[in-house]
């Protein structure tokens, strides 16, 4: 279960599992296999792999259990500045936007007059 607030475009573990089910786990290549086919120039248009960018904790918390449940492996393309003391403001602002205004959004849904 992710501790992160659910932001715009976020999907749940159930939705992730449904997408994998729709694609078919057997149609999704392991990273090393995808990379080997690419290096050999043998990637077919239908070849699939899963990639997760930016080292986000919600990916770890939401996605990894789903992948483990069906035995899938994926690429995790990280940027490394955050592992040596850096900070990428856009993700901080995204989190703040989601977390700080979730209450406001909920209130507006319940009381439409407030939004006007």
């Amino acid at each position: 279960m992710s501790s992160a607030p659910r932001g715009q475009g976020a999907i749940s573990a159930d939705e992730m599992a449904a997408m994998i089910e729709f694609l078919g786990p057997r149609n999704i290549l392991a990273p090393h296999e995808f990379a080997e086919r690419d290096a050999a120039g043998k990637l077919a248009a239908s070849d699939l792999c899963l990639t997760f960018d930016d080292a986000l904790l919600c990916q770890y918390e939401v996605t990894l259990p789903v992948l483990d449940s069906v035995g899938l492996k994926a690429f995790w393309f990280i940027y490394s500045s955050v592992f040596c003391g850096g900070l990428e403001p856009r993700e901080v602002y995204r989190y703040f936007r989601t977390a700080a205004f979730a209450i406001y959004a909920t209130t507006c849904q319940a009381k439409p007059n407030i939004a006007r």
Binding site: K73, A74, W76, F77, Y79, G86, R90
Partner: peptide
């Protein structure tokens, strides 16, 4: 944990503006 579990961790950049 990702690496121990057989997941593939690659670097796409250092920073990400």
């Amino acid at each position: 944990t990702l690496v121990k579990g057989g997941q593939t961790v690659w670097l796409h950049s250092f920073r990400h503006p």
